[in-house]
């Protein structure tokens, strides 16, 4: 596993020229399924876990899931991107939450 697309949340970026995950993945791994017009990852094992698609998805539909050989079920790390900062929420395996707010742009 690498990234998981929540099909209920993904709207296929219909208003965009190219869906943002498809546009930005540095490994050309995200694609749109012609059947349901939603995103999927074509080669899970090739994901670098850079979290670019996770950060840029306008619907927060993508989550990172590290390979189970490296990481136990079911901690999460969820980013939310703003114009000049990013907020991260990390929930560990015991359910403890930690939040971070980090500047990304000097405006």
């Amino acid at each position: 596993m690498s990234v998981i697309v929540d099909l209920k949340k993904c709207n296929g970026c219909k208003n965009k020229e190219t869906p943002l995950c498809v546009k930005n993945c540095p490994g050309d791994l995200m694609a749109i399924d012609p059947e349901n017009q939603k995103a999927y990852i074509c080669k899970e094992e090739d994901c670098w876990d850079c979290m670019v698609c996770v950060k840029l998805c306008p619907c927060s539909a993508i989550a990172t899931k590290l390979p189970y050989q490296l990481a136990l079920y079911k901690a999460t790390l969820v980013p939310k991107v703003y114009e000049d900062k990013i907020k991260w929420t990390c929930t560990d395996i015991d359910g403890n939450k930690e939040e971070f707010e980090i500047k990304t742009l000097e405006i």
């Binding site: 876990d49 979290m51 136990l72 901690a75 790390l77 971070f100």
Partner: peptide, 18 residues
Amino acid sequence: ASFLDMYPGIVLYWAANG
């Protein structure tokens, strides 16, 4: 926070492995 700016996977890894 410093890792989140560059290599976020490790923060998730720590969280997942306690």
